[in-house]
Computed example of a mutant assay.
Amino acid sequence: MMFPDYRPRRLRRTEALRGLVRETRLHPGHLVYPLFVAPGKGLKAPIDAMPGCHRWSVDTVVDEAKEVADLGVPAVILFGLPEKKDPQGSEAWAKNGVVQKAIRAIKKAVPGLVVITDVCLCEYTSHGHCGVLAKDRVDNDATLELLAKIALSHAQAGADMVAPSDMMDGRVGAIRSRLDDEGFDDVPIMSYAVKYASAFYGPFREAADCAPQFGDRRSYQMDPANAVEALREASLDMEEGADILMVKPAMPYLDIIRLLRQEFTLPVAAYHVSGEYAMIKAAAARGWIDETRVMLESLLSIRRAGADIILTYFAKDAARALA
């Protein structure tokens, strides 16, 4: 039997050869670790739907941030659980809110760690929606000023980057203008530019206590059926001043990550969300899959699709495995 001159298996024979021709690299430096910060002291409360993840108080989150940095993961993103909620979500921009306190504490203890903050109202509003309400409808334009106030409060506390996740029209421009006017023109915006109304967010809503009290978020988050719309959303955010464009979720939307990578020169981030994490954890707990291999293969697929940055609850585990 005659073979062609080129045999692909020649370069797969050993790990050294495979590594030499590997097209896509995954490194801890590509990862961002999400952290949930809650009121109290000495808190490390397990999140049932997300094994291995916890809610932290400000004092304990500092030690967790140190561990993240020691593993070579360069950044964290903070989500806050307030002491009290109201229809406006006013705790979100409080000077001494849990996120603002956590920013100051982490930047003092681990100054080299990049601290990103989620900018949204859903964790803080009594109704659980990402904006203020006009009767039973989320009022887009009335929400913009509040989002800008949140972002400014985070920048004033020392955040290195803000990440609006609300999906209100015009929010990147409103935040950019407010930050610039207040002298924070050097604080970048990582926009949740393409955020789908996904069923993969369930465990996060338990972790952050932010499920809507009525209705759902399909009137402001994107329809999972749409791809071309993703380009419109990303284009608008870029024009308004976004520095990084994010796709959320990640693996069900690898085609969208690739689409943004091909169309834009800005860095592209992808959020490997709670549902993706929880499914791997659940299958591994039953012995159905090899958790470490599936984790790394999943993250590698997101990189291969074109993501420069991956936000993932696996960041610490992946960093250890990659070491």
Rank of each mutant, 00 (worst) to 15 (best):
L133A: 10
S153C: 07
V37E: 00
E83L: 11
L179I: 03
P28Q: 10
Q156G: 01
Q213A: 15
L81D: 01
S191Q: 11
L133W: 07
L121Q: 05
R10A: 10
H129M: 12
S165K: 06
S274Q: 10
E240Q: 15
S198F: 01
D308S: 01
A208Q: 01
A227E: 13
M167F: 11
L260G: 06
I310P: 01
I77D: 03
L146F: 07
Y33S: 13
A105D: 00
Q88V: 15
L299M: 06
A278P: 11
H127L: 01
E276H: 10
L71Q: 11
E276Y: 05
A151G: 09
N96S: 14
D243N: 15
D136Y: 00
R232N: 12
L11Y: 11
I244D: 01
A92R: 00
Q213Y: 05
L322V: 08
D290N: 15
L311Q: 11
M238N: 02
A197W: 00
M161P: 01
A197E: 11
A134H: 14
A318T: 09
E91L: 08
D160S: 10
P28D: 06
M238L: 15
A230R: 02
Q221P: 10
A69Q: 04
L35C: 03
D209A: 12
L133F: 05
A16C: 06
G131Q: 09
R218I: 09
D169H: 10
L35V: 11
R176M: 09
G131W: 02
A142V: 08
V228K: 13
P224F: 09
P4L: 14
P39K: 13
Q213C: 12
L20Y: 13
